[in-house]
Write a protein that binds this DNA or RNA. Structure first.
Lengths: 151, 151
DNA sequence: CTGATATGCTTGAGCACTCAAGGAGGTCGC
DNA sequence: GCGACCTCCTTGAGTGCTCAAGCATATCAG
């Protein structure tokens, strides 16, 4: 087996372990999944804390229908609201509520701690993590902000 | 956001893109998913081309029930058979058929090519891929062979 | 204005996994 | 040999996504 295939399979495997760990902490402390958290985080990064649902889908790497279904519970528990566009009747925005923004702050602290624990165990340097981030950015296709290093 | 959280989210994102790519090629050429291929590959690596289903689950990072369900289509199309243990009536083996082994060879070539394409695009060295592999091994928990480098 | 086409979103059906429960078989103490 | 446990596997219910289809709205050509 080639190295490239080997590392691909390891990546797939690593992801499931990683997701489980985030889900456990985020679920236990805040009652949300990693997918929920990522959704709220993207909304929090957007201007005004709101995005068109189609853009949110693109940012999350999901389909529009995945976003529709994923937002339902977040709307139900009051972290996100649906807003309409006065100019274009087709679009619906997903917007962070004040509660949502407050809860997101707590979740972010939890998620950062989990990530810190994960990357604390192996003796890997900041540069190693940076390199990995750069490669993952390419692998991940479009959608993430980009983390472009200064030239 | 910390670097550790950033790279975690990128990893999750990268995985979905990667899986889609493998699924497209493996599905198109051989009619199997990446999960199917990984299952067959593990069986192929095992002595005698067969494993107890519980060990297969461990190797794949799935639950036993996930393996039961995942093997059904592979048995149906004749790539895998179920074998029993004469000594222990509880265990059922999943075993690669001759057809399965032949098809696996073709699939492996396809998968290696896809992986090569993925890792050809970014100008990353063999060492970079090796480092990434090592980190992913730690992240991924147990289950993979290990790739321990010579001391 | 009208019809054709494109866009944004939702919905039904399906798929691949999970967890929880349960059946069948094995092991051990007594 | 029998009861209490453990292990291996399957099954029912639920989750979170996908694709395909459909509806409503917008845009544009004539």
């Amino acid at each position: 087996m080639t190295d490239a295939l080997d590392v691909s399979l390891r990546l797939v495997r690593a992801q499931t372990a990683l997701v489980k760990r985030f889900d456990a902490s985020l679920g236990g402390l805040h009652g949300v999944s990693l997918a929920d958290f990522t959704t709220l985080l993207r909304l929090g990064q957007a201007p005004g804390g709101r995005m068109r649902r189609v853009d949110l889908a693109e940012a999350l790497g999901l389909t529009a229908s995945g976003v529709t279904r994923g937002l339902v519970p977040l709307e139900r528990i009051g972290l996100v609201t649906r807003e309409t566009d006065a100019r274009d009747g087709r679009v619906a925005y997903a917007a962070l509520t004040d509660t949502g923004r407050a809860r997101l702050t707590d979740m972010l602290a939890t998620a950062e701690q989990v990530a810190a624990e994960i990357f604390a165990a192996p003796p890997w340097s900041k540069e190693d993590i940076g390199r990995m981030s750069a490669l993952l950015t390419r692998l991940g296709g479009t959608g993430l902000p980009g983390h472009t290093p200064a030239p």
